[in-house]
Nucleic acid binder design. Structure first.
Lengths: 355, 355
DNA sequence: GCTACCCATGTCACCGGTGACATGGGTGCC
DNA sequence: GGCACCCATGTCACCGGTGACATGGGTAGC
């Protein structure tokens, strides 16, 4: 590895002068500069960014921690962060935390230990108090779920409104018996969405029925059990709100053969191509990622500036014919290419499906 | 930031002894060790990994560069790399390169500049000769596509066999007029798959028809144009092989209403839920990522050991009823939950769909 | 009792770039 | 002409952990 001192020797100047040339310091004579530039070129000098960072102390690296990169929601979010980082000339370190709270803490610590200058994190654990030490040192911005156990910036979707919207939409289409299925009531997002669901029922004068609320349908087996249990309710539901994309993706296969209307949370690739196409409440992961990353950059640039702590982004209903009332269900046909009906613009994932 | 010297002062030992305690060097008296451990705890010491890395010269960071993280194929691949890296106690820097060759080179250089100890890259450009300098310094392993313009390790799917398999499968189901649509003939993967497709036609004694080969159906508009053109061929195709997942995802919507059988390349979430469910040649991105990352780790451990340069992974046909002959097409019905018919095991993406 | 060696610990330099400050020649201005 | 100041360049230390080697007390073996 060629170092600055090698270049310096060759150009018969000091290492410092090489440093100046390399960093476009104006206080170098054109002639000297030319000689150094020549030497740089000849030796194929590449700066050791480690040494630079080490000396100056602030690595141009932005961390992103999400539960699962293979989840399209988080993949899009991470990509948005990457784009912002690239604009600010920073690298991005991405880490998948998984859904186990214990592993989350460990993975986050190990990510933070590698001198980042900022972090965007989508947590799933119940408490992030242990990040307090770190949050004091560098900008930590939460996405998708607000922090618990510490104060920090957060950008989330409007979960309550999303739950309300989904359920109100089903009610408007004639449904009266509407189930809600989510991952776990302990997830703040799911809790909020359920609350929104209930408030829509109340607004319509419908009685909430606890037997139509279920959790934990994360794999095919449990999804089928949940569907079975819901089916046996009296009267059985004619529609279902799924509290998260993970649940939607296991639930829809389990629902095959039944004519329930479905509104899911979180768009995913090809959602519009399913039969029936799943109507979704879209949370715009790209916007979440972009805003969070921009906040990190802003905080780095102005450490003592004050920002709104929690920003709630509006959600949007993307209707796709999965929510028609039972009377309309016969109109469904596979090859009729169900496209967005209500929404002004299809969501990013549907419009530009990843290859 | 507490440093080792701070801890040393407090424990009344030298910084070196603190270093020894911290790194579990056995040559420290239990009593000294206890004192140092106590001081470490009291001051909440955290190692500055930058300094360590800087000194030892080998940063525990593995780079992953893929065209697009939001593509489930690459997301799964990146996740697999992450897991291997975690096992080797390394961090992962992920970078999305995009599909523009010029930007690819720039993004790669900037990724490499940040002292990585190894790189896993899935290129799309026509030539990676410019990576030669880097490949000499650190293990660079190609995935999905082999390198061009330099010699390096590569793990790819068996594209030729995949193309043959897809087409042979359609032929076995009674199809005679089979179209091939891909992103671009310049992509090595697509070229190989097309060659495989042609060899299957030849094996069956079918005449290859150039008018049934099309490229560039990457967005909805061009997909519809391509489908229109294929439809007007005489005789029109009854089946179609899609050369990549990107194309599949735009093509399937454009095919709605027609009864063409489809075999795609690369599985994606919910593929089995489409109507008709798309039969795919699955490339197992997780295996590609895992093997590539393991190779990087192996090369780091044994710099002069020799490895097979190019490993071709077998591909697997996952049949899902999208390839029946025209006579059978009437059997398709949306809610019949099309599942894998032939494949022994459903692909990872279908079995554990991201939330 | 002396050599040889081990062990716990310390000292020092070094990785490579850069910030703080020094140096010394040149220029301008009263 | 002398003082002030600027400019190009150099010198040196430093960031923080660690490898190479030194030190000095203890112990075993002949």
């Amino acid at each position: 590895m060629t170092t600055m001192r090698d270049v310096a020797a060759r150009a018969r100047v000091s290492a410092k002068t090489v440093s100046r040339v390399f960093n476009d310091d104006p206080h170098v004579l054109p002639e000297t500069r030319a000689r150094v530039t020549e030497a740089l070129r000849e030796l194929g000098y590449l700066p050791n960014s480690l040494a630079r960072t080490f000396r100056t102390g602030r690595p141009p690296v932005l961390g992103v921690a999400v539960p699962d990169l293979a989840d399209p929601f988080f993949a899009v979010l991470a990509t948005a962060v990457e784009q912002v980082a690239a604009r600010a000339d920073m690298a991005v370190v991405v880490s998948s935390l998984g859904y186990d709270p214990a592993r989350e803490a460990v993975a986050l610590e190990s990510l933070l230990r590698r001198s980042l200058s900022g972090l965007v994190v989508a947590p799933t654990s119940q408490d992030q108090g242990h990040l307090g030490t770190w949050a004091a040192r560098l900008p930590v911005v939460f996405v998708d779920r607000p922090p618990r156990g510490l104060t920090a910036d957060a950008f989330t979707g409007d979960d309550h409104e999303g739950g309300r919207l989904a359920t109100a939409h089903l009610i408007a289409h004639g449904h009266r018996d509407i189930a809600f299925v989510g991952d776990s009531p302990a997830m703040t997002t799911t809790g909020e969405r359920l609350a929104g669901h209930r408030s829509a029922l109340a607004d319509a004068g419908l009685r909430p029925r606890d037997e139509l609320v279920a959790f934990g349908a994360g794999d095919r087996g449990s999804a089928e059990r949940v569907v079975g249990r819901l089916r046996s309710a009296v009267p059985p539901p004619t529609a279902l709100v799924s509290g998260d994309a993970r649940t939607t993706m296991t639930l829809v296969p389990a629902l095959a053969g039944s004519s329930w209307a479905v509104v899911g949370f979180g768009d995913f690739p090809m959602a519009h191509m399913l039969s029936p196409a799943v109507t979704v409440v879209d949370q715009d992961p790209a916007a979440l990622g972009r805003l969070a990353a921009e906040r990190v950059v802003e905080r780095l640039g102005a450490p003592e500036r004050r920002f709104r702590r929690h920003t709630v982004l509006p959600v949007r209903l993307v209707e796709r014919r999965s929510c028609w009332s039972p009377a309309d269900a016969s109109a469904l046909f596979p090859s009729s290419c169900p496209r967005a009906v209500v929404a002004a613009s299809p969501p990013p994932l549907a419009e530009e499906p990843p290859p």
